[in-house]
Amino acid sequence: MDSIIQRKNELIRIEGLGKTFTSKSGSVTALKNINLSIYSGEIFGIIGLSGAGKSTLVRCINFLERPTEGDVIFDGESLSSLTPAQLRIRRRSMGMIFQQFNLLMQRTALANITFPLEIAGVPKERALERARELLQIVGLADREKAYPSQLSGGQKQRIAIARALATEPKVLLCDEATSALDPTTTASILALIKDINRKLGITVIIITHEMSVIEEICSRVAIIDHSKIAEVGDVDEIFIRPKSEIARKLIFPEGPRETLFNGEHCVRIVFDGKSSFEPVIANLILECQTPVNILYANTKNVNGTALGQMLLQLPESESSRKRVLAYLTVKGIPFTEETIRQED
């Protein structure tokens, strides 16, 4: 598998990273002992609820925020050992885009893209040439003279992406880059990011609170909860077998619906793209000679493969239950036994 080859090439290593904000009114620990490796060429997702510490983490990766513990190794170089001037030069290899786009409002689209090049001291002619190239890539070649106020949200983010790519970075950091956009625009921006990742080979780190974004383009994901990494792994693996409570919550935010049911004997089964719901459940009922109650069902498209998840309530009779579980095991359908409790 090519992913194994990719993984040999570690681009970013986050080592024992911690961040505590101290102020007169007290201290807030935003990150605790974060350890992560991000490999060259992958699209890595970081997901968590609001306030989990995602933005702080991504800002620690390019040292916009200096970690209070641990270090970030970028391309084999410890960022904490760099002087401010060296760090500034290093940042040119790390593009960043934001939820609010953060474009210079008094500059045209084109001048926004040349901005990082101006800062890096690239000659004007070359900068313009590169900026026009990038406008082409993000599909806004005809809007170079437009000011940000004349562009839609999606167009602004495209310009921001072009700007972030100007200095030919190795990684693109995206902090909630689609959170201010409608679903259609979100899809088109994600498609663009995926395209850039594939065509230019740029590693991408996606910060989001939406599982759909992770499903859409990430190969691996870290779930961050209350300042700590709760789980990290391949997206489909986490989707099929979420280990943490927070992972389940993020994968099925519609979850509260499940709590409408009080159930002692429940199983959560997951389907990969090869099977589908109906024959499995139909066969299960036929073979086990027992009805089951479907509490919840949902299919998701993860990186192009359909993944389904279903919550079944099993019969009261223990022997029937055992038959169902045995059937699932024999058929190799991943499942977890769960008790669904009513939450307040």
Binding site: L64, R88, Q100, L103, M105, Q106, I119, T167
Partner: peptide
């Protein structure tokens, strides 16, 4: 001047002088 824009400039490796000269003053001109 929007703090986000200044942060973006930091993320591109702008020096404090560049941030004043190329971000803060032009953005605040009106």
């Amino acid at each position: 001047v929007d703090a986000g824009v200044i942060e973006a400039a930091h993320s591109m490796g702008a020096t404090p002088i560049q941030i004043v000269w190329k971000v803060m003053l032009p953005e605040a001109t009106p």
